[in-house]
Amino acid sequence: MLKGLIDPEFFEAFTSGEADESQHLPVYGTRDPLLGLCPSEVEEESGPAHHRLLRYLRKEVLPTTFCVGCGGGTVLNTFAHAIDEMHIDPREIVCVTGIGCSSWIPSPYFLCDTLHTTHGRAIAFACGVKVMRPDMKVIIIAGDGDLAGIGGNHLIHAARRNLDLSVFLVNNFIYGMTGGQVSPTTPFGTRTTTTPYLNLEHPFKIADVVAAAGGSYVARWTTYHVFQLMESMQNAINKKGFSFVEIISQCPVSYGKMTGTSDPVTLLKQLRDASIHVDDTDGMSEEDLEGKFVVGKLVERQRAEFGDGLRQLISERRESISAELDRGLRQDTSALETGR
């Protein structure tokens, strides 16, 4: 079913003005980008050729179970592109997720060590992983209900602690997997299945919360801004310390159905049109920014990383013990016992 659709010869002919435009009919692909074979050969050897980034995915679970036009798929796609561009070996990545649609983005789809945890606890599990394996990239991808709702406490404390984790919070304003209930980021006044008249609560601006809690790198983008998002993900992964990217995403089915449209294209256009870059907000009041998504890098700061601190502490203690043993001054170690 794979079609390669621009023939380079035709393209050359076209650009030189010699081509007959009516003749630009589909030309079946010349070679598969992954295997370097013609599709006909590929089909014989290993089935149809696919997207070059499928090598980062668990193929046995594709296509995804995401609804039509779900932003989660775009996040997965952008994430795979980000990892591919960074040339990170997926064996050096641990993806930790919670419960909800957004937690399915890396689990099961992204092919790396994957810890799919209980609801809200992804960051807490990830802390244990990262402390033990500082050499691995520990990446958390989960939703607003998971990370900002039930797991909100872990989120702010992880930002405070500043362990080197990368958190990608996919904010679709709704509990999607359970059918569209109000979430901590649902805008004021919105109808959902559990606020059937209107939402009386005010939402978190969750990236701002994390920035205030001490995150080392905090950014916000939408699923429309895929190139900026990809770069932001890369910056977050590279940043030593707790980094956080809020990804505003469309949920056509659970959120869209209650808020006017289930059309993913319209929803994505709304995200695009409501976005304003942080650099363009100078002099704007809170009222001016009502209903807008301030996108871009919100915070980047340098703070001591927690894991480094732990390892430094261990090496100092070990050195001092080693020195003490060498000096043979261990006769009276009762001080250790009652040192508290």
């Binding site: 076209f14 630009h24 696919h50 296509p63 995401f66 989660g72 798929g73 997965l76 796609n77």
Partner: peptide
Amino acid sequence: AYECHGCRLCELLCPEFAIFIV
């Protein structure tokens, strides 16, 4: 086809890895 600049916006936006540019 001749209008394609190879910007890859479709490739990145696609939620399903169903379209890509070489």
